[in-house]
Design a binder for these strands. Structure first.
Length: 223
DNA sequence: TTCCAGGCAATAC
DNA sequence: GTATTGCATGGA
């Protein structure tokens, strides 16, 4: 399977649906096109409260990369508006920085992220993740390394890899599962990894496509 | 008032 | 190994 740019997924491409595509592949591509047409590009991951539509060059700086990681942890089971308020507080304290987070008094950090909910747990998670991040020294983490960090589960790990590091790994969330269940493409007992594999097997490994697809699924889930 | 959001770890069975 | 429970704010 060749790498296909985002623009390739247009209705004209679907009209030329070819016999080498599997049924699942066709279904997923059709789903993607339907969502993209309905909601338009989503511009994820938002950086500094800014959605960069059709610009897949982010993160542009190390600070932006780390901000995505922080946001991915803060948004666990929490609405993004609450996370934005927590990030706002953190920016005012110059806390979008792994060394600052590692060294700052945990109570101050906790206080800053109160709007994000689960603040005691998340403060601890940010501390632990920051130490891990510092040790990386800029190296791209392996998925298993991320999963071994306390507080980082499969969705957070994949979000970090996909949006902070542009690694084409598909992010599965509650909306994704619900949607595929409705489409009868999976059973209720499908594991996270099996759902992730379903997308990765049937779509080109294109980080732009995965970034947009996951964001569109979330947007659709909100409706 | 109740329910749930861009999950995860700990505990129970 | 799978099912349940605690974590917590803010908006609908």
């Amino acid at each position: 399977m060749t790498l296909v740019p985002l623009h390739f997924y247009t209705s004209s491409y679907l009209n030329k649906f070819n016999r080498y595509d599997s049924k699942k592949m066709y279904t997923l591509k059709k789903l993607y096109n339907r969502l993209l047409k309905k909601y338009g590009p989503q511009g994820w991951w938002p950086i500094n409260n800014n959605y960069h539509l059709k610009d897949y060059s982010y993160p542009k700086t190390k600070k932006q990369r780390f901000e995505i990681c922080v946001g991915a942890i803060l948004t666990q089971n929490t609405s993004w508006t609450n996370v934005e308020n927590a990030l706002l507080n953190m920016r005012q304290l110059y806390l979008i920085d792994p060394i600052k987070i590692k060294n700052i008094n945990e109570n101050i950090l906790t206080n800053a992220i109160i709007p994000a909910g689960y603040f005691n747990q998340k403060a601890k998670k940010l501390k632990i993740f920051s130490e891990f991040y510092i040790i990386l020294k800029g190296r791209i983490p392996m998925r298993n390394e991320l999963l071994n960090v306390w507080g980082i589960g499969p969705e957070t790990a994949d979000s970090i890899l996909l949006y902070a590091y542009k690694i084409p790994t598909f992010v599965v969330d509650a909306y994704t599962r619900r949607m595929l269940l409705d489409m009868k493409m999976i059973n209720t007992d499908a594991t996270y990894d099996s759902i992730k594999f379903l997308f990765e097997k049937n779509l080109p490994k294109d980080y732009k496509l995965y970034q947009e697809f996951h964001a569109l699924i979330v947007e659709n889930g909100k409706h």
